[in-house]
C-alpha cells in the first residue's frame, strides 16, 4: 500500500520575533529556502505601491482652491516649467521655475505682504491633499494673532522647493512658506515638508531655508508643525534671515523616518 505524500507549504519562522520591539526594520521575516515568505513579499510590494502611487498622484486643486477661497484667501493656480511627471522627475531645474503664463497670472496678485504661501506637489501630491488643510487650520490663526500681513496662496503643479523663490519674489513677499510633498518612503507616502525662506529670490540654495519635515499622521502633528513654523517665522523676522544661521530651538524630536 503506498500513500501519496502531501507536501507542506510551510515557512521557517525566526525565533527572534521579540526583537521587533526594538526596531521598525523588517527583521525576523522568516524564510522558505532562502526566500522571503510570500506574506512579507506582498507587504513590501504594497508599501512600494503606495509610494509609487503617491509619486504619480495629482494635487486636488479644486478642493484646495475652494477651501482656501471660502476662507477669504486669494488663490493662484500656477505651473512649473516641467510639463509632466516624466519631465519633472528628470529635470529638477524645470521644477524650480514657473512657466511662461505665471507672470500674467500673478499680475493682480497681492504684493508686499509679510508672508505668502506656495503649495506644490513635490514628490507626493497625496501629502498635499491630506496634510495641507489640517496644517493651515492650526497655522493661519497663529499667523493672524502674531500680526503678520498674510499674502496670497499659490498652488504650483510639478514644483520643487525652489519654485517658491520665484513666486515670493514676484509677490515681493518678505517671506515665503512652501508646503511640498516629500519623497515617499516605504513607511510613509503622505509626508509633508514645510520650507521657510526669508527674502525669497531666484537662485537661493537650500542653506537659505529652514525645513520642517515629516508632517503626517504618525509623524509631526499639525499642531506641532504649526508651532515650529511660527517659532521660525518670528525668529526669521527678528533676525531678518532664514537658513543655516537660524537655529530651530523649538525641537520636536519627532522628525526622521
Amino acid at each position: 500500500m503506498s500513500e501519496l505524500q502531501h507536501y507542506i507549504p510551510g515557512v521557517q519562522e525566526d525565533p527572534w520575533e521579540a526583537l521587533k520591539a526594538f526596531t521598525s526594520a523588517r527583521i525576523a521575516l522568516g524564510r522558505t529556502g532562502q526566500a522571503v515568505p510570500l506574506k512579507e513579499v506582498l507587504n513590501f510590494r504594497l508599501a512600494h505601491a503606495h509610494a509609487r502611487d503617491a509619486v504619480y498622484s495629482a494635487m486636488e486643486t479644486d478642493m484646495l482652491t475652494n477651501a482656501l477661497r471660502s476662507n477669504g484667501h486669494t488663490v493662484h493656480l500656477l505651473h512649473s516649467m516641467a510639463a509632466d511627471r516624466y519631465e519633472y522627475l528628470q529635470r529638477p531645474d524645470k521644477g524650480r521655475r514657473l512657466d511662461k503664463h505665471a507672470e500674467e497670472t500673478l499680475k493682480e496678485a497681492n504684493k508686499d505682504k509679510d508672508i505668502c504661501f506656495v503649495i506644490t506637489d513635490g514628490l507626493s501630491a497625496t501629502a498635499i491633499n491630506e496634510q495641507v488643510l489640517p496644517l493651515l487650520g492650526e497655522l493661519l490663526p497663529l499667523i493672524k494673532a502674531a500680526g503678520f500681513g498674510l499674502g496670497d496662496f499659490n498652488l504650483v503643479q510639478q514644483g520643487r522647493v525652489a519654485v517658491g523663490d520665484e513666486v515670493g519674489a514676484l509677490q515681493r513677499a518678505r517671506a515665503v512658506i512652501v508646503l511640498i510633498g516629500e519623497r515617499p518612503g516605504l513607511s510613509a507616502a503622505d509626508s509633508l515638508g514645510a520650507y521657510l525662506t526669508y527674502s525669497p529670490q531666484p537662485g537661493l540654495t537650500d542653506d537659505a531655508r529652514n525645513c520642517i519635515s515629516n508632517i503626517r499622521p504618525g509623524g509631526l502633528t499639525p499642531q506641532m508643525a504649526a508651532g515650529t513654523i511660527m517659532y521660525l517665522l518670528k525668529e526669521a523676522f527678528r533676525l531678518q534671515l532664514s537658513g543655516v544661521n537660524l537655529k530651530d530651538e523649538y525641537q520636536s524630536g519627532l522628525s526622521g523616518g
Binding site: 526596531t23 523588517r26 521575516l29 513590501f44 513607511s187 526622521g256
Partner: peptide, 22 residues
Amino acid sequence: GVPGSDDIMLSYQSTSFHDALY
C-alpha cells in the same frame, strides 16, 4: 544587507539578507 531590503533611516531600498542568500 538591509533587513527586508527596506532601509528605514535612509528611506531607500537595497538588497536584503535574503537576497544575499539567493
